[in-house]
Nucleic acid binder design. Structure first.
Length: 461
DNA sequence: ATGTAC
């Protein structure tokens, strides 16, 4: 008997096949007929639970018992898209995600673009499984806004002070951390839930309250409420908006479990490997879920520390705040089924749920209230969405163009790189207009003082 | 998004 025959039956290549072949040899030595072996192997891969106590093949049943193996399904899981002119690569990625046997439904948001595994702006509901790369590398990347009992005129007459507060209280760039770590009760949680979080707990402590790189930012701006909302009267307010996530530790958790998931599902065709899942009732699945949940708390604490320090430095009263994850997985009920909803660059938009959808450094962002649209899996866009790669941006955009846009919007840029220029993003107003069935706009936020990671060092190789 | 390793 050969490995190729096992593969045809649906056995994953690698360790499982090696084990199976060893056991086949053992069976034949003890006098089994080859046809009987085949018969057992065919049934075992379908119903491993039935063979857990089998005298010879019990070990094999145990090895694959927790796995739902990839089988091409007759029909892809249903999905729907919002917005026009979506990146074909992003559409292809969502189509691929809907081929998985664990997928239940999908949705593609109007800011969608190509990601790793699931596209950014992709939403995927699965049953009994979680996909590390459908959560994303920056687990629990999120938004937080604090609204102050202060007029927006502070942005003019107190500009130097506000700028200094951001410079003093944030840390930007890959690997950024504080020399003297901040305190937060999240560090009292059980960081032993995963070998990764156990190993990196001290790194997490030093990065608490930091912003990182890429599209992360901290900005002061004007929040405009056309009506009373968020517990405050209509009008204009000074507000702080931050975008950050679970930093280096979250990235390590994501990459670690995605690699293990790929090894756990070696039967996946190449184009689906980055969508490798972990069954929720498997040991690895539970470990990832616990680590992901901790990263959710950590990312929330990250923003909480940042806002706590900035509020203290400013000394103004806080009248409202809004926050939400947009890279995470939740256990939710949809269509009467308990499913895992992955939102990778998608804002939760359940009925009445508040969230923040930022634009670019020179364009407005919005506080939104979800409408609970079932076919979007109660989700909305998480931003304007990129229209060009970082490399293309650095090639095609000049600082002169950026400065003109900043001047037109009255924005002071403390630091950023060209790959976050306003022109690398879709028009946010257009994105919002494509999702008016998903969210209603509660307030508008216009950035005025913006801080992002400064240009990085060129790669050394 | 992250940051130094199959």
């Amino acid at each position: 008997m050969r490995g190729s025959e096992l593969k045809q039956m649906g056995y994953p290549e690698g360790n499982t096949t090696t084990l199976a072949l060893n056991l086949v040899g053992k069976a034949c030595e003890s006098g089994w007929d080859v046809d009987d072996v085949r018969d057992v192997l065919e049934k075992l891969v379908e119903e491993p639970g039935e063979y857990a106590e089998h005298e010879i093949f019990g070990e094999l049943a145990e090895a694959i018992g927790e796995r739902v193996l990839f089988r091409e399904r007759d029909e892809p899981a249903p999905w729907k898209q919002w917005g026009s002119d979506l990146d074909p690569a992003a559409i292809g990625q969502l189509e691929n995600a809907c081929r998985l046997p664990v997928s239940v439904a999908g949705a593609l948001m109007p800011d969608a673009h190509r990601g790793y595994g699931l596209p950014i702006g992709g939403v995927l509901a699965t049953e009994g499984a979680v996909i590390p790369y459908a959560v994303g590398v920056d687990i629990a990347c999120r938004m937080k806004m604090t609204v102050f009992d202060a007029p927006p005129s502070a942005l003019e007459h107190d500009k130097e002070h506000l700028s200094k507060i951001i410079e003093d209280e944030t840390r930007f760039g890959i690997g950024a951390y504080f020399d003297k770590p901040h305190d937060h009760e999240v560090m009292d949680r059980d960081w032993g839930v995963s070998p990764v979080t156990r190993r990196l707990k001290e790194k997490a402590r030093y990065q608490l309250g930091s912003s990182g790189s890429g599209n992360h930012f901290a900005e002061w701006g004007v929040l405009t409420l056309a009506d009373d909302a968020l517990g405050v009267k209509k009008g204009q307010y000074l507000a702080l908006l931050t975008h950050s996530g679970s930093r280096g530790v979250g990235a390590s958790v994501a990459n670690h479990y995605s690699k293990l998931a790929r090894e756990w599902h070696p039967e996946l065709p190449k184009e689906l490997q980055h969508l490798a899942w972990l069954e929720l009732d498997s040991e690895l699945g539970q470990e990832y879920w616990a680590a992901m949940s901790l990263m959710g708390e950590y990312a929330a604490a990250n923003h909480a520390v940042m806002h706590r320090e900035i509020v203290e430095a400013l000394g103004a009263e806080v009248v409202a705040d809004v926050e939400n994850h947009h890279n995470f997985a939740w256990k939710e009920e949809h269509d009467g089924r308990e499913v895992v909803v992955h939102r990778k660059g998608a804002t939760p938009a359940g009925k009445g749920v508040l969230g923040v959808i930022p634009g670019s450094m020179a364009e407005p962002g919005f506080v939104v209230r979800g409408k609970g649209e079932a076919t979007s899996l109660e989700s909305a866009a998480h931003g304007a969405g990129r229209v060009m790669s970082r490399r293309q941006a650095k090639r095609e955009i000049s600082w002169k163009d950026v400065q003109a846009e900043l001047d037109a919007s009255g924005v002071t840029l403390l630091s950023a790189d060209l790959d976050e220029a306003p022109d690398v993003y879709k028009d946010i107003e257009s994105v919002m207009s494509h999702q008016d069935d998903l969210v209603e706009i509660v307030a508008r936020f216009d950035p005025k003082i913006v801080k992002m990671a400064p240009p990085g060092e060129p790669p050394e190789d």
